[in-house]
């Protein structure tokens, strides 16, 4: 099993903010299965940079409104 990623995302909140867009609809827009959208939302799968941009474009927001990477603690 892979290590959890430090990248977090706001896909679930953004879907809700965009007319409660379903996972299936987002999946259709970016050309993946619904299961892949779920895995990305839950941080269980890291999308490629291209797919990350496609997700941001689907929500019409900049990339870092969708994905965040925490500052180092030290």
């Amino acid at each position: 099993m892979g290590k959890p990623t430090r990248v977090t995302n706001r896909i679930r909140a953004l879907r809700f903010a965009h007319g409660e867009m379903t996972q299936a609809e987002l999946a259709r827009r970016i050309g993946v299965t619904r299961q892949t959208v779920i895995a990305i939302e839950q941080g269980r799968y890291s999308p490629s940079l291209e797919m990350a941009f496609q997700i941001a474009r689907a929500f019409e927001v900049p990339l870092d409104d969708v994905f965040q990477y925490p500052e180092d603690q030290d």
């Binding site: 679930r12 909140a13 953004l14 879907r15 809700f16 903010a17 409660e20 379903t22 996972q23 619904r34 299961q35 779920i38 839950q42």
Partner: peptide, 11 residues
């Protein structure tokens, strides 16, 4: 924009 419930995660 509170996140929707996780109910639609079962696929």
């Amino acid at each position: 924009h509170p996140a929707p419930e996780a109910g639609d995660d079962r696929v």
